[in-house]
Design a protein around this nucleic acid. Structure first.
Lengths: 214, 214, 214, 214
DNA sequence: GATGAATGAGGCTTCATTCAT
DNA sequence: CATGAATGAAGCCTCATTCAT
């Protein structure tokens, strides 16, 4: 019978680890399959047992970086919370996560951004997914009477603009200590309170009621 | 007889112009010599009369971008001003310049950053040069009694950290309207006043005295 | 000013000549760019000045083979002849041409077929073009009352089936001496007379009236 | 202890079956060992227990296709028949066999031809073998006084030319219904009668005497 | 001075093949 | 016996760079 096949998934992870090291050492620019293979001590051809092509590898590299953020989005969207709280969690939890990563190893963080710049399509998928989830939140918010007089798309776009500094990893590099959970909370409140509410005299309470969850 | 060297210089400038256009149109990623030659209506081979190799071209492209900033640094360092004022000018004039460029054409500004990411050594030269001039300023400041108890390197590093958002072009994209000459002035004052003064009772005046020069 | 650039078109033709030799010598199977380059005494990279990619080269090779046949089709379709005569010319002239080529160098003829088998898309273009012109002829024939009760597509398909041995180059290898202009003429007549005529008692004359043109 | 070699032989046959299926499904072009292994549910490496290399596999695939034809040739050559009858059987039995295969599954038949085109050496072996047996028949015919004034090689070549359409599988695709056992018989008769007889006034009988054997 | 020509090195990818287990 | 692992050679293609003219 067949020998136990070395876990392909394990190999992928190991390669992604090595990828990470390389990116850390030399930046993410022009990382070649040959180079990765050499660093992994295997032949270029063998890489293709683990990743169908370079694009797949990059996707996986990005995927690994984005995975926890996507998990957060899914959790939050599925949670049973009022839309305002949900929206806050939606952004703040990802922000906190990113900030932690940045503090832990700023150089690697930056190198990943470089990599993202070179493989934009991969990043685009994440951004689009984020927009998709955000639009679900917007729908819920509208059901609760918030954001009247806006199309879903307009609302999504508007919100994105307001929280851009908390979503975009590059912003962290320059803002970092200027960013805080509290400020993000205020932005979200501004969105919910400032943009009006349809069928409600008392806009929930008027006061922010933020619960920070890390 | 040899033609005046100005011809070459003119050609270089023209090529850099075209380079700029290309970068503006399609981003700085993967700009190839062949492509540049085509855009310039000349043969790839001819490019090498103007630039020894691609690296030299990139250096020149970055050089052009950095040139006015370097000029500012040199001017300021050579100026006859007290160290506090000098330090302020050192940062604020470059900041204002960059912000103007950014406002004038944000897309091109970003594309240049991309280019910088791909040719880091070139950027590194500028950064190192900046550190060099800054250390001269630090020396002068120390002569005037400021920044006691710090090594030059530590001082340079500390200052850089404090003004990073005013030095790094990428920061502009995210901060822009949050940045101002006034705030930068306050940071500089914080450095000079906050870090103490050795042999001086009257710290120059205690008040910031900023003169904005564009 | 620019030196006279060696005619790219001439280079293409020369390469196609070499291609032809190679195909003759070793069959058309697995002809590689490297091999062609070696045979042409140039670097593989240089091939790409003449052909954008391998596909383009194959296309050109096929194009060269098909060109005279396409010219024939165009001439015939544009000619001022009754549809029956036109249809005959449409097929017979190409057939005669192919037969001549076959007789002149049977081996090369066969090797080209091999090549065609490996690059079917290229052949498909020619076949589709043939169908296109044929459908124009069918329309004219229908205008003249022939081929009633048939859709254009059905007529095209039917005709193709009847003359397949005169169109398909592979058939030549096996049929050759069994094929003749006269027989083809009879097939065409069968199509025109046998498939009926709409508004005509005397089907033109009932007798074939073939004029062979080489 | 070594297992009976039949196991290997069985495996070979099974693999050739699968090969056949694949060829039927997707044409014979670019069939790869990896693909075959996958289809066979075994590892690529394991293929090499059954076939030394790809060439050997192709040889076997062709061998399987040619095997019954070779058997026919051997039977006929070994038979105790007059040369004229023998020659007829030599060709007609193979022709009938091929035609049956073609009718049973035309697509597979064609795909095998493709495969043959890609591995010509394999086909060449069969053709050469056929020539070898044919030359034996020619010798016998000459012993019986037929084919005077011809070298063996010339006779073989001449005969091959006359019966080409009954030997070459590709011909079937285009001729098929135009080919018949009767016509082949007439060709053979033409060879034996038409090319003269040396020491014989009554050329056997002057009439064809064909006995069809499937 | 400027060109077209030409190339070598390197990138991604596939595949027949080998080998330790 | 059969596997998964691994590879080298080859294929197509791009691009910075050089050189004779």
């Amino acid at each position: 019978m067949a020998r136990p096949q070395t876990d392909i998934e394990a190999g992928r992870q190991e390669l992604l680890d090595i990828c990470e090291q390389l990116v850390r050492q030399r930046g993410g620019v022009d990382l070649s399959m040959t180079e990765l293979a050499a660093a992994a001590g295997m032949s270029p051809a063998n890489l293709y047992r683990f990743f169908e092509n370079k694009e797949a590898l990059m996707e996986a590299a990005a995927g690994r970086w984005f995975a926890p953020k996507i998990a957060i989005m899914e959790e939050v969207v599925a949670a049973d919370l009022p839309s305002r709280e949900k929206m806050f969690q939606f952004f703040v939890r990802r922000f906190v996560r990113m900030r932690d990563e940045f503090h832990e190893d700023p150089d690697m963080f930056k190198s990943y951004l470089e990599l993202g710049n070179e493989h934009f399509e991969v990043v685009k998928g994440y951004v689009d997914l984020g927009d998709h989830y955000l639009s679900e939140l917007v729908v819920q918010a509208m059901d609760e009477g918030y954001l009247p007089d806006l199309s879903i798309d307009d609302a999504v776009s508007l919100i994105n603009q307001m929280v851009v500094t908390y979503c975009n990893p590059e912003a962290l590099i320059y803002l970092d200590h200027k960013l805080s959970e509290e400020k993000l909370g205020m932005i979200i409140d501004a969105i919910f309170i400032g943009l009006g509410r349809k069928f409600d005299a008392k806009p929930s309470s008027g006061k922010p009621h933020i619960k920070i969850v890390t």
